[in-house]
């Protein structure tokens, strides 16, 4: 059995419908445990005070913002190469979720930045990169909305996603070069010496799992909705043609 069988819309819906409640439930459980653990059961950090606890939302949402775009890139490539409709629709479904994650990351970053750096916004490379990523999401979604023919829209947005990914990476380097920044380095890299201590690390992992599950659940649900919309349209057209 090949994995591509799940690219059949019916099979996809049949397979994912029972998965969605579990993914949602898992997400809720992880977020509840992770956030309560992180917010109330971890010690105050000496340097950051209680403000550090926003990382339990900030870091996972920022990671998902980037991962959502990466998932869209893969889905776009699958559509362009193998022409599976489900893949194109999954990319479409993931975009608003990714955009929301980007907004959450930007917002929590601003809320955290105010007490830490004394400013809501700084043209720091990471912040700027996320703002640019947000613009890319905006353009991608707007292009989907602007084209009435779904296959054409899928083709064009896929090419935009590809080209956009290259320019997004370029922008990342450009922004790094442009301003060295205030933001601390990646705190989650496994080999980093100054990794945050385990006390904060475990609840963060739980939150991260929660966000991943939430993303999976939302994307599966939205892809299912997109498939049903297309199916409804196809049925309507069939009925119209039968009448004609």
């Amino acid at each position: 059995m090949s994995i591509w069988e799940y690219a059949n819309p019916k099979k996809f819906i049949a397979t994912t419908t029972p998965v969605i409640p579990w993914a949602f439930g898992g997400a809720m459980l992880c977020l509840l445990v992770g956030l309560v653990w992180g917010f109330f059961l971890t010690p105050q950090a000496d340097r950051f005070g209680s403000t550090v606890k926003i990382i339990y939302v900030h870091v996972p949402s920022a990671m998902m913002a980037i991962n959502a775009w990466a998932m869209m890139l893969v889905a776009s490539l699958i559509w362009l190469i193998r022409r599976h409709h489900v893949s194109a629709l999954a990319a479409k479904a993931a975009a608003p979720v990714g955009m929301t994650m980007t907004l959450i990351a930007l917002f929590t970053g601003a809320v955290w930045g105010q007490p830490m750096w004394g400013t809501w916004w700084a043209w720091d490379p990471r912040l700027t990169s996320f703002l640019i990523l947000f613009l890319f999401y905006l353009g991608y979604i707007a292009l989907w909305e602007a084209i009435p023919d779904p296959d054409q829209a899928a083709d064009l947005t896929s090419v935009l996603c590809l080209v956009g990914s290259v320019f997004a990476i370029l922008s990342r380097y450009a922004v790094l070069f442009w301003n060295q920044g205030l933001h601390q380095g990646a705190t989650l890299s496994l080999d980093a010496k100054e990794n945050i201590s385990d006390v904060y690390w475990f609840p963060l992992l739980v939150c991260l799992a929660g966000f991943i599950l939430l993303f999976v659940a939302l994307v599966l649900m939205r892809t299912g909705t997109e498939i049903r919309v297309r199916r409804l349209r196809a049925l309507e057209r069939q009925a119209q043609r039968a009448l004609a």
């Binding site: 640019i132 613009l135 890319f136 353009g139 084209i147 956009g164 320019f167 370029l170 450009a174 070069f177």
Partner: peptide, 23 residues
């Protein structure tokens, strides 16, 4: 192919202009 695509064009192109502008 998009009617009144001018505004959308700006929205799509401006983020792509970022690296060129910065450098």
């Amino acid at each position: 192919g998009i009617r009144r695509g001018g505004l959308l064009l700006s929205l799509l192109v401006l983020p792509l202009y970022v690296p060129t502008l910065i450098f």
